Simulated scan of single mutants.
Amino acid sequence: MAPTRKQREIAARHQRILAAAREQLLEGGYLGLSMDKLAAAVEYSKGTIYQHFSCKEEVVATLALETARVRLGLFECAATFRGRPRERMLAVGIAADLFLEHFPDHFRVEQIARGAVREKVSPERQRELASCEQRCMQICAGIVRDGVASGDLDLPAEVSPEELSFSLWSSSFGVFTIVTSGAFHLEDMGIAEPLLALRKGQNRMLDGFGWRPLTDEHDYEASAARIRAEVLDEVLVTLREETL
């Protein structure tokens, strides 16, 4: 059943509040956001704001959840790529890069939210956030297991699929945080293309594990082009329309 006019108006107001909150967080950080400022920005009464959110922590947590869902949507799509497991892991890496490229403000707000509101939001919201994060890790670990099952990867007994996935995730997260912070003059350090440097480093790590096909055995640039064309470009357009 299609939503009623009133439901559409409530949903639009909800998104307007979130958009204003994101802007305030980016400008002033967590302390720069308040329910009073939010009400003034969207020209609603504070009581109306409280009809949507019980406190400012819930506002920030909702923004973080929105971000987590966008990332998860890209990861789920990337994992469907028809290729060998290492190509599918590349697809997830490209999805992460595209998320940063097209939703940089979402990523920055998520970083603010992580340290500020976890202990103050409802258990339900915490479970929703944790579920998205766990699902992203499960996707990556599942691809590693597929690599082992296919014979492309002989994973050492002391390294679990989750640990290998964590190594990839943590390196990406670190680079993304550095890039979005704007606090480092990377070109002066000899890093003109940080995401390319990240991908090269991760490829060397996977080559070190012997995950086939190795980079000198396969045209991963061609795989990347197929990944964009076959599974990611279309869903990216949809996510941008739904989110921005």
Rank of each mutant, 00 (worst) to 15 (best):
R69D: 05
D152T: 14
R108N: 04
G147Q: 10
M89Y: 15
I143L: 15
L63Q: 01
C140N: 04
A79G: 04
E110N: 13
E87I: 12
L153K: 09
T80H: 09
I112M: 10
V59F: 10
R82Q: 14
V121Y: 00
L65Y: 08
P104R: 11
V109I: 07
A91I: 07
W169C: 07
R84S: 09
Q138M: 09
H106E: 04
A116I: 03
F166T: 11
R71Q: 07
Q134S: 12
P161F: 06
E76I: 01
S160E: 12
S167D: 03
E58Y: 11
C55G: 14
V59M: 04
C132K: 03
V70H: 01
E133Q: 10
T80F: 04
V148K: 08
F107N: 00
G142T: 05
T80N: 09
P161A: 10
A149W: 04
R135K: 13
E57V: 03
P104A: 15
S122C: 08
S167A: 15
P161S: 06
H102S: 13
D154E: 12
E87F: 10
R145K: 10
C132M: 00
S165D: 13
E110R: 14
L74G: 04
L153W: 12
V59L: 08
R82S: 15
G142R: 14
R114N: 01
K120G: 04
R135D: 02
A91Y: 10
R125I: 14
R69Q: 11
V59D: 00
E163N: 03
D152I: 11
C136W: 01
I139N: 02
R82Y: 06
F99H: 07
R118W: 14
R69S: 01
R145L: 10
R88S: 11
R118Q: 02
V117Y: 00
L74W: 01
P123Y: 13
T80W: 01
G142K: 04
E66M: 02
V92R: 04
A64R: 05
E133W: 08
R125Q: 09
A78W: 06
Q111N: 07
E66T: 09
R86F: 07
K120R: 14
V148L: 02
A157I: 01
F75G: 03
Q134H: 08
A91V: 09
L72M: 04
E66Q: 12
F166V: 02
S122L: 10
C136Y: 00
S131L: 01
P85G: 04
L90V: 11
V70D: 00
G142H: 08
R69H: 07
L72S: 02
Q134I: 00
S160T: 15
V70L: 06
E87T: 07
R82E: 15
H106G: 05
G83T: 11
T62A: 11
L90K: 12
V59P: 01
E57I: 07
L129A: 02
D146C: 07
E66H: 00
R86K: 15
G147N: 09
L155Y: 09
A79H: 07
A68C: 03
V109G: 00
L74H: 05
R108F: 05
G142W: 10
V144H: 10
G142M: 07
L168P: 06
A79Q: 12
A64E: 05
L90S: 08
K120L: 06
V117R: 01
E119K: 12
D97V: 13
L153G: 13
P123V: 10
Q138Y: 02
P161Y: 05
R118K: 05
M89I: 13
G115K: 06
G147I: 13
L98C: 10
